[in-house]
Amino acid sequence: MSPMTPIAVAIVNHNTRDHLRECLATVQLEAPPEVVVVDNASWDGSAEMVRAQYPSVTLRANKKNLGYGAAANQAFVSCTAQHVLLLNGDTLLQPGALAALSGYLARHRRAAIVGPRLVDPDGTLQASCYPFPTPLNTLLENSTTAVVLGRLIRRYIPIVGNSYLRTWPHRSARVVPWVKGAAMAVRREAFDAVGGFDESYFMYFEDADLCYRLNAADWQVHFAPVTTVVHIGGASTRQWGPEMGVRLLASTIQFYRQHASGLRIAEVVLIVKSLMLARWISGGIRLCLTRNACKRAEIAAEMGACRVVVLGNWRNLATCS
């Protein structure tokens, strides 16, 4: 049996100190040759915790939140291994994860990225591979009515749910368009060939964009349940409240502007603005019916975020920290 190709671990963190501590504990049990943490200007003591409790870890502590893609690029520069497992700070590895992922990359030479199976802390499956966005799935995945309908279809008509990447059982390896960046094993050769992450994406869709460019360069992206990674999910982004929903839609539009035709761009802009207008209006109704001051403040913040998109100012949110 040939020796395992060394695989480094690179973690991007922003204000998830306690999760990061647990993540690093599971990583160290795997004894990777290199571990890099890029901290995006956390104010919760994340960088200090890494220095004090994990002195062998290479730490890059940014003074400014550069966004996920830029921080991930820094992590790749800071290690040398030919395979790199890129993680969010709110993930937990199982024993044998690194060997399983590196071994999969070694056996599948055209695979630039392999995404493992992701689960919630309670073991519930997380969707982790997706089709590239279209105007229709942009509508379906951001409409509350469509999301509820999708859950009912998956429950009562499983043959339909099993045919859609977001809802299939995630039980077997397959080539997919793109995988979630919360945990992805990356082949450095391919990553370098396409220039790494596009740093113009501050948050969201930087993983989809990377996979899109890898596909265009004749590499493949795989999902492979060779190991399972626990992903808390939202540990960092929930701190920003409604703004994250706007960032998601802003990055969706950015992806279309870079990779789609003018007609598709116009379609998705119309869909996004319509969705946010509906949320703005429903927020106004809820605001009138709500007396709790804290809840009113949350609703007002959500309405403000929706207003930004409806009025066409999403670019500011797509790039600022």
Results as ranks from 00 to 15, higher is better:
residue 224 A to M: 00
residue 284 G to A: 05
residue 149 L to Q: 13
residue 144 T to V: 13
residue 191 F to V: 06
residue 176 V to Y: 02
residue 252 T to F: 10
residue 96 G to E: 08
residue 155 R to K: 12
residue 16 T to C: 15
residue 141 E to I: 05
residue 280 W to Y: 15
residue 197 F to Q: 07
residue 43 W to Q: 12
residue 303 M to E: 02
residue 83 H to N: 10
residue 260 A to G: 03
residue 217 A to T: 00
residue 84 V to L: 12
residue 229 V to I: 15
residue 241 G to A: 13
residue 213 R to Q: 06
residue 59 L to V: 04
residue 195 G to I: 03
residue 177 P to H: 05
residue 314 W to G: 02
residue 316 N to D: 13
residue 243 E to V: 14
residue 161 G to T: 04
residue 138 T to P: 04
residue 101 L to F: 01
residue 70 A to G: 08
residue 58 T to D: 02
residue 205 F to L: 12
residue 33 P to G: 11
residue 200 S to F: 01
residue 319 T to M: 13
residue 302 E to S: 15
residue 74 Q to P: 05
residue 109 R to A: 14
residue 292 N to I: 06
residue 206 E to H: 04
residue 276 M to W: 09
residue 283 G to M: 07
residue 101 L to N: 02
residue 81 A to Y: 00
residue 310 V to F: 10
residue 315 R to N: 08
residue 117 R to E: 04
residue 192 D to M: 11
residue 36 V to C: 07
residue 104 Y to R: 07
residue 114 V to Q: 00
residue 119 V to M: 08
residue 109 R to V: 07
residue 93 L to W: 07
residue 133 P to W: 01
residue 153 I to L: 15
residue 144 T to L: 15
residue 315 R to V: 14
residue 295 K to D: 11
residue 79 C to D: 03
residue 76 F to E: 06
residue 321 S to E: 13
residue 15 N to A: 14
residue 170 H to D: 06
residue 304 G to E: 03
residue 318 A to M: 09
residue 300 A to I: 07
residue 12 V to T: 12
residue 120 D to V: 05
residue 161 G to Q: 11
residue 260 A to H: 13
residue 137 N to T: 09
residue 240 W to Q: 10
residue 120 D to P: 00
residue 101 L to T: 04
residue 244 M to H: 02
residue 36 V to E: 00
residue 65 N to M: 10
residue 234 G to F: 02
residue 19 H to W: 08
residue 229 V to K: 10
residue 180 K to A: 13
residue 79 C to L: 08
residue 5 T to L: 08
residue 182 A to K: 03
residue 230 V to A: 08
residue 248 L to Y: 15
residue 110 R to C: 01
residue 38 V to K: 00
residue 18 D to P: 10
residue 123 G to H: 02
residue 243 E to N: 09
residue 150 G to T: 11
residue 176 V to T: 05
residue 116 P to M: 05
residue 223 F to T: 04
residue 172 S to E: 15
residue 61 A to C: 10
residue 97 A to D: 02
residue 273 K to R: 15
residue 172 S to R: 15
residue 90 D to L: 11
residue 245 G to F: 03
residue 76 F to I: 05
residue 9 V to T: 03
residue 1 M to Y: 09
residue 255 F to Q: 05
residue 113 I to G: 00
residue 218 D to G: 04
residue 283 G to V: 12
residue 36 V to N: 05
residue 198 D to V: 07
residue 14 H to N: 14
residue 49 M to S: 11
residue 318 A to P: 04
residue 272 V to Y: 10
residue 244 M to E: 10
residue 191 F to Q: 07
residue 300 A to H: 05
residue 43 W to L: 12
residue 303 M to P: 02
residue 273 K to Q: 14
residue 175 V to A: 14
residue 10 A to N: 00
residue 97 A to N: 07
residue 192 D to K: 12
residue 136 L to C: 05
